[in-house]
């Protein structure tokens, strides 16, 4: 009986360590990526709004050639902008079109983030559940101060 319980506890622990925790880590990494994208698009939106406000039609900027080596670049016409729409495709937009797209995109990204957050929460809940199961198996007292792993 005791050995059976031991085995079960071990299996639960393995499930937590080898399945749930890596899942959690992966989900968090995914969400971070989406956060980054959100930031890129919000920056882009701000920049385009800035251009609009100052009605900048030509632009001179520095291009990073790699290894922090820069060269001057000239943009004769800023009214047409190519925006990354995913999967390596870039679409030529005017400013207003770009802003439209960006707001749609931001919305979607926000939804994705929420999804990931929910996923993360559920994984955490699972971990907690299994830990609780282990506690029950070991017939330890349900201690308020000792609440298993905290993430």
């Amino acid at each position: 009986m005791d050995s059976f319980r031991q085995e079960k506890v071990q299996r639960y622990e393995e499930f937590v360590d080898k399945r749930l925790k890596p899942d959690l880590v992966r989900a968090i990494a995914e969400r971070d990526k989406v956060f980054e994208q959100q930031k890129t698009f919000s920056d882009l939106r701000k920049n385009i709004e800035n251009l609009e406000k100052n009605s900048v039609t030509s632009l001179r900027t520095m291009v990073n050639l790699g290894s922090e080596v820069y060269m001057q670049a000239d943009v004769p016409d800023t009214r047409h902008i190519f925006v990354d729409i995913g999967l390596g495709f870039h679409v030529e937009f005017t400013w207003s079109e770009a802003l439209n797209f960006i707001s749609l995109r931001e919305e979607k990204l926000a939804r994705q983030i929420e999804e990931y957050t929910r996923l993360i929460a559920s994984i955490k809940a699972h971990i907690k559940l299994v830990c609780e199961g282990i506690r029950e198996l070991l017939q330890l007292p349900a201690d308020g101060s000792l609440q298993g792993p905290v993430f």
Partner: peptide
Amino acid sequence: IMVPFGKAAFFPGRLIH
């Protein structure tokens, strides 16, 4: 070249100097 404008956008432009 396509001049990068932020991470997700480009302008058509050219390198000078």
